[in-house]
Design a protein around this nucleic acid. Structure first.
Lengths: 218, 218, 218, 218
DNA sequence: AATGAATGAGGGTTCATTCAT
DNA sequence: CATGAATGAACCCTCATTCAT
């Protein structure tokens, strides 16, 4: 029966509305943290920015603490599905996949000052670091493994002697984090496009047969 | 004038004691921020940890905000004099100086979990506090110039074609920041010694004639 | 009129369902107040415990305050009809009726930790809520008169010189309340059966011809 | 030196002031609980009634919870030292001591509507009962033992056959609690003097050789 | 009739700052 | 100078009540 296939309409609509609210609040939280920092973010501002009453935060997230955690989870999920999708859509070679991962990090959708600010807020605040680890450790490991695997493949394909996949993967990851930071802090007049170029320059250095400063070799 | 040359002794002693108080409070602030984060750091804890009364903080720093700024300034000054000293004491060649800068970043005295935590706490809040941003930028301006200059010199000395001092200096700086972060977050099981090695591996890649994974070529 | 004699069936069924709802909510309120106290009792918990939605409480009772008043009234009515029934069913003599009243107070159905807790919760708040006070007074007015009357009868029957019905009735009532409290607070390892015995011991003292520690003299 | 014998004056004055503040707040709490009940008592009202700012409550008591606990402790201490003093000052016979305990319960200083309200608030609220027990169990036991011991002595002295010290002590204690309740709730138009008389009437009944309705026999 | 999402007032708690001593 | 008691604004959270569906 149709009834079974599709839920009772008002219920489904309600459910959707609820999810909508959550998302609005998370977006508002990202904005608030970016604008006022972790310490300066309070729920009444977040709620107001989302066009709701204070009570909504506790209704949907139970506490400020959990709102922040869910915000982090949102970003982490977004990042994870982004790189997984990127790998799927990338060309078949390891080098092309690697290039996609680098491109991704400096894509406007992810490399956004507001979002970067939230990442650094979690990394920077001693109290939220355990939360970050609990939530992101696994995700980060998966990413690291993917990165490491791709580096290994490129090394094998390109017969790069003396190249150490471990070192290269770690370097690339650290480089990205550092560039993100420079972008966030407006350090060294860093921009996403310059950061992208710097990352490819690194790859061109370690894998000269596969990369140039501009990207992957065709 | 006499007054300037030799201040009234008790006055001078007082001045010294005052400076002593300030330092104690800053040290206690570093501890507190590292342990409890920015938001979790409050004046009374800091004062108690420094063995003083609450009132001392406002007496010496006027406000909590100023205490934090002075703490950041303390770290920035410490870092600056460290690298300036390092450059003076390093061997005469640019490569040796560059190596010293890298070594410095992973020296226990500076690459210390407590201090890293404080740096990242400030960076995490920086976007929302112009004062921090200004201080951070200032810290890096001169350092970047030194780094850039050294890279240029090495490039000239080594006749590295296609090497871009801008890119290399920025890469090295970003790499360092990212490695610091990995150390702080305990990411990718990063340690200071591994971070140092990774940094030299980068230099060995871009300046193969001057560096190996272990350091500068003799 | 027909309408009054036999209501429209579906309407009557509805009426019954409504009454059912009220009762469920009152029962849930008793549970909640017993478990979490007055201050800790909130509408959503009560509603959930009664298997209904929050809105039902306001639909059936208008406000939380009214729900509490109705709960108190429920207990008062229950107590009243219990002692009225007890008097009807008791033997014909005043002593037997008096004995029934005492027995009643320590019957499991009424002398139940949950219900005692609620009584004392109301008494604890009574002074600050005139409505409760009025309800409590009302509850006791008639009971006291009955008690007083029975004492008088026993005195007359037994020709107890120097016995004052006022004092005895008040003593018995106060003794009962105090024993209830001891049971609730688990004071002096008081149990319902010991409390019953203590009450009869009192009666045996003032009316030695009619009572023993075990109950009424046959 | 005198300095050692007596603390530094300003310090001692401060200490005294602190104790003074605590007492003011406790007094205000008793008032507030009596007037508005447990649930209706909030710290800002208490603080205002004590002529202080809200912050003082948390400064001196850490939390509302602890303020209430300290208020209970104050009453419990007051009661304990009152009955201990009463026993010391009473005549040498057990009957005289027993009479003093009864008198005490209906002395204006202790049998005060405001204080009674607080006792019943603690007894009535499910959440505070554990606190009450933790705090008062020992004190109550000591009192019970004293009461029990006195009853035993009177029984021995008076050669009361068939008198059970356990039952009498428990009865007396329960009777007192019940009378307190009647006074608090304004039940049965109970007053302290009538309650006192009722208590002595009980004693006169069980110990006719030692007591009359008016008190102990000379 | 029934639901539960939404509101917003109210309360406890924290804490930077002030100030009498 | 130095202390720490005192203040009160700001914040998070709870929850009775309302109301659209």
């Amino acid at each position: 029966m149709k009834r079974n296939a599709a839920q009772h309409p008002p219920l489904r609509r309600r459910q959707a509305a609820k999810e909508q609210r959550r998302l609005q609040l998370i977006k508002a939280t990202i904005d608030a943290v970016a604008r006022r920092g972790f310490a300066g973010t309070n729920i009444s501002d977040v709620a107001r920015a989302a066009g709701m009453s204070q009570g909504m935060v506790n209704l949907h997230f139970e506490s400020k603490e959990k709102l922040l955690v869910e915000t982090l989870r949102f970003l982490a999920d977004e990042y994870k599905s982004a790189w997984e999708t990127a790998l799927e859509r990338a060309g078949p070679t390891a080098a092309k996949k690697l290039a996609q991962l680098v491109e991704l990090d400096f894509t406007p959708a992810l490399c956004d000052r507001r979002k970067l600010a939230v990442w650094f807020a979690f990394w920077g605040e001693a109290r939220s670091r355990p939360t970050y680890l609990r939530l992101c450790k696994q995700r980060d490991q998966e990413y690291d493994e993917a990165l490491h695997g791709l580096c290994r493949q490129v090394i094998v394909e390109g017969r790069y002697k003396h190249a150490d996949a471990d070192v290269i993967a770690s370097s690339l990851a650290a480089l990205t984090d550092g560039l993100w930071m420079d972008i966030l802090i407006s350090h060294r007049s860093m921009s996403a496009s310059r950061a992208r170029r710097i990352s490819f320059a690194y790859l061109a250095n370690v894998f000269p047969g596969h990369f140039t400063d501009e990207g992957v070799v065709a």
